[in-house]
Each structure stands twice: as structure tokens, then as C-alpha cells.
Amino acid sequence: MKKKIYIQILGVIACLAVVAMHVNGCFWQFSYDRYWITANIIECICYFAVPIFFMISGATLLNYRKRYTTAVFFKKRFGKTLVPFLIWSVISAIWYYIVYHARPEGIREVVDGILNTRYVDIYWFFPALFSVYLCIPILSCIPEKYRKRIFGYAILVYFVLEALAPLVCNLMHIEFNEGFGMPAVGGYLIYTLLGYWIDNYELSKKWRCVIYAAALGGFLLMLVGTQILSLKNGTVDTTFKEYRNVPCILYSTGIFLFFKNIKNEKALGCLAKLTAPFSSLPFGIYLVHFYLVQMVAIYQIFPITSIKYRIFGTIAIFLISAVTVRILQIIPVIRKAIPS
């Protein structure tokens, strides 16, 4: 199946946003200095990135049965993600012990570090993605004629019980009873269903505008709320953060919907040309860019709080990572370690 243009564009933009967030890692070092204000802005602007990857999985994989069997589905998915994850997790362990001059206490510590992504914490994304892959064969058994209502129902109930209710309880200082959750759509499946729903069903202009307004509201709530509460508490406040929280769900949904509904052929063509050279690289860039970001921080190549570094460094690290991945992809022995 030929990848839809907007999916290609979103994949590359989300990858660039991920790199930007990690280059902007000083966000997690709260300060009353001016740099933290710009760090919060960059963090919030780019926060849609990870949810977009889960949404792309929903848009591209839930109809896999039309193309191949479930056995082939697992072979393709885990061959492109599980094998690279394991290889790079071993590399991350080696990196950790060399850079920090530490010795593992035993194989148990190494296995624990890999399974719980302690060496490279950004690899948390892959176990979450594997869980989504395991659920897709079940979701794909739902007949297409029922999916609009069933998936729409699941999205709505999840949003109310897993995102909105916990946030409201948190703001009211009330403990949320997790027994009211939505186990049928646990983890990051909400984004998988959202990606499929937006990709397959059309919304009227009125409803698109409502969602765009909600997305803007979610973004502003995350940006302003984080800014105010963090300044008040003297630490990074995560009340309005977390990928499965109301602000991020609204914001990410609006971003995905916007790109899906770009009608300007000239703009779409321009974005397609700009992103085409990177269309097979996002997962590879995700795997390797961490080491460049870490080297800058460890060896103090640039001041990590510098706005110039956080903007131009993002572009440079993205491009260097892209070139690195492209080179590794053409080396037969190493190819399996770099998904395309």
C-alpha cells in the first residue's frame, strides 16, 4: 500500500519534533532564568510528536488483513522494530558503562536496564509500541461497518474516564478511583484508534473547527498551566503534561486532523518534496540521535540552555542522524539494526 502523503509528512515532522524535545532537555531542569520560558514553549509546541507515531500506526496498520496475514503482520512489525530495539538496547548498555565508567553487577542488572530502558530512557516508546502491535490483530477483527461507532465510542469513553476525570480530580485534590478506567483501550491505544478514525472518516468543516479550537485550548492549557504552576512550585509541574492527558490528546488530534485535511495541492506538494528524503528514516533517527544529544551535554560542546543550540542544534542533529541512518541502511551486516 502506497503511503499517503500526509502520513509521510507527519512522520518526518514528528521525528524532527522528537529531536527538538531532546535537544531542549534543559526544560526538565527548572529555573527562574529566562531560558526555561523558551524551553517550555519548545517542549509544548513539539509535544504532539510521540502521539502522532501511535496515530500513524492506527491509520496504516488496522487494515493490514487486506494486504497480508497476521503472521506476516507480526513478522513485518517486530522485524522492523523489535530487532532494532534489542540491538540498540545492547549498544545503549555498552554506551552507558563506557561513558559513565561503571561496571554492571551482573547479567541481571543488564537485562533489567534493557527491559526497563534505563540506559536510554527515550527507548520507552518501543515497549509501548509493541503493546499496541499486539492489540491490533484483535481490533482489526471488528468489521469495518461497525468501526466508526465502536472506535468512536471507545475514544469518547477513554477520554472521559482516563484523561478528563483524572485531571479534574487532580485539580480538585481528589483521589481518582482507577476502577473507573477503560481497560479495553489501555495504554496508548487511544491514539491508534484516533489515527484510524481520522484517516478513514470525514468530518464537516464545523466539527473540524471545533476540534481545532479544542486543540488550541489544549496547547494553551499545557503551555500556560505548566508555566504558572512550575513558577509557583519551583519545579517542573506536570499537571497538564503526560501524553494521555487532556491537553496532549486534544492538541495531537488537532495536528493530525489538520495535516489530513490540507487541501492546498501546492503546499502539500512542497511539504512532500521536503520530507521525501527522510520518509524511511524516522525510526532510525529516533534510535541514534540520543547519542549525539548526550555527547553535546557530556562534553559541553555547546551550552545546552542556549536558544541558538536548541534551534540550530536540533536541525544539525536531525540531519547528522539522518545521514548516519542512511549510511547504516546500505551496509548489509548492519541493515537489520536500522528500520526503514
Rank of each mutant, 00 (worst) to 15 (best):
A316Q: 08
I338N: 09
K145V: 01
I45K: 04
Y201S: 10
T117M: 06
G181T: 13
L292K: 03
P127Q: 00
L328E: 01
I174M: 10
A102Q: 14
F312Y: 13
A49E: 05
F85S: 03
Y96S: 08
F312H: 03
I150T: 02
F318Q: 10
I142D: 01
I45E: 02
Y97G: 09
G152I: 01
Y100E: 10
E162H: 01
R244D: 15
F180S: 06
L257G: 04
V168R: 05
F30I: 12
S204A: 02
F302S: 00
R103I: 12
E109K: 07
F159V: 10
V12C: 06
T324N: 05
P104A: 01
L62W: 00
C46R: 06
T324Q: 09
M172V: 10
R335W: 02
V72E: 12
Y196S: 02
M182N: 12
I330F: 10
I304Y: 11
K145A: 00
W28V: 13
G152Q: 01
A215V: 12
T69N: 07
G225P: 08
K266W: 07
T81F: 06
I114P: 02
P183S: 02
R149P: 02
Y146R: 00
E175L: 10
L231A: 13
C44A: 12
P127A: 03
G217L: 09
S31N: 05
E43R: 08
G106Q: 03
H22L: 03
R244A: 13
L82D: 04
I37S: 07
L62E: 00
V157E: 07
N200H: 12
G187P: 02
G313V: 09
M182F: 13
T38K: 12
L287P: 02
Y251Q: 03
C248L: 15
R310C: 02
G79R: 14
S252L: 09
L16P: 02
H173C: 10
A184P: 00
M222I: 06
Y47I: 07
F312M: 11
F283H: 06
P282H: 03
P277K: 02
T38A: 13
V99H: 06
I37L: 14
C26V: 15
L328A: 08
M1A: 10
Y299L: 12
S279R: 12
L194A: 06
L250T: 04
P332H: 08
F48I: 04
W28E: 11
